[in-house]
Amino acid sequence: MNITTIVHITGFALILIGFWGMLTQKNMIKIILGLAIVETGVQLVMVAFGFIDGRTAPILDSAVELSKASSLIVDPVPQALVLTAIVIGVAVNALMLTFVIRLYQQKKSLSINDYKDLKW
């Protein structure tokens, strides 16, 4: 079993756990925590796609010979994508928590079952 597969299984398990939590939990903060777990899982899977066993980080210092760089480093593109995804993720989580705080100020409840205004 190679490392990419191990990290993929971990990431997929985190996605499933977070998804299950988002669908079944009643507390709105718990739902956002479920989304945070899903985000971590997706980011792990993406970084694992670029991992190549036995290679070093994509930084061209003295450990990496410039002419043979493409055979010595791991894939830098997924890392750049995940880097920005993490920062976006925390901002979006904070915005959703703000909505929860505002909803709580209106109805004094955190349970999703108390907000049925849009239910037909």
């Binding site: 190679n2 490392i3 990419t4 597969t5 796609f49 670029g50 991992f51 190549i52 066993d53 994509p58 930084i59 061209l60 210092d61 410039l66 760089a69 493409s70 055979s71 480093i73 894939d75 830098p76 593109v77 890392q79 750049a80 880097l83 920005t84």
Partner: peptide
């Protein structure tokens, strides 16, 4: 699992240093 860089990542790894002059390739991409 990957065993080699392909496509755009290979281009970045080969030309990143001479094109942009940045040691950290992730920074060069971002």
């Amino acid at each position: 699992p990957n065993y080699d860089l392909t496509g755009v990542a290979k281009t970045y790894a080969e030309q990143g240093a001479s094109d942009l002059g940045a040691m950290n390739l992730v920074t060069a991409i971002v």
